[in-house]
Each structure stands twice: as structure tokens, then as C-alpha cells.
């Protein structure tokens, strides 16, 4: 069974590089269009997509801005 995962992206650290978007096999991450205080376009979780909790986005994020909450069951 899959768990339910929440992807928290910390706008304080995100530099809007897009690696997480490219990395996610399920296209869960999308550009939010909103600029962070530092002027970067920060991604958000697309709730219509299903996150499998693989944590590839968390691993690839160079700025350690991503936290995947929830446990795989």
C-alpha cells in the first residue's frame, strides 16, 4: 500500500533550479509561478499526481530544500 506523502519545499533555500521537477518519475512537482523572497520560482506539489515517496527529489535537490513527509507503508 502507498502512503500519502507531502512534499515540503523550503522557499528560504530553494534556488529554483528545476532539478526536482526533472527528477520526479511521476511529475508530482510543478512550478508554482510564485517568486520567493530571493526571486526564485519555487516548485509546489501537484496534488492531482500521486507521490510514491521515492525521495528522488529530496536526494537531487542541491540546496537540501525539500523534505518528503510521510512514511512508505
Amino acid at each position: 500500500m502507498r502512503g500519502t506523502f507531502k512534499i515540503v519545499i523550503d522557499a528560504k533555500w530553494c534556488k529554483g533550479c528545476g532539478l526536482c521537477l526533472a527528477e520526479c518519475p511521476k511529475d508530482v512537482l510543478q512550478w508554482s509561478g510564485a517568486r520567493s523572497a530571493k526571486g526564485y520560482n519555487v516548485p509546489v506539489q501537484d496534488e492531482t499526481k500521486v507521490c510514491t515517496g521515492c525521495r528522488l527529489c529530496e536526494l537531487i535537490c542541491p540546496d537540501q530544500a525539500i523534505r518528503v513527509e510521510g512514511e512508505r507503508q
Binding site: 534556488k15 529554483g16 533550479c17 528545476g18 532539478l19 526564485y40 536526494l59 542541491p62 540546496d63 537540501q64
Partner: peptide
């Protein structure tokens, strides 16, 4: 932004 160094450090 997007530099691989941070990923490797992680």
C-alpha cells in the same frame, strides 16, 4: 542554482 555540488554533499 542547479550546481551538482549540493547534491553530492547531500
Amino acid at each position: 542554482p542547479g550546481c551538482g555540488d549540493g547534491t553530492v554533499l547531500g
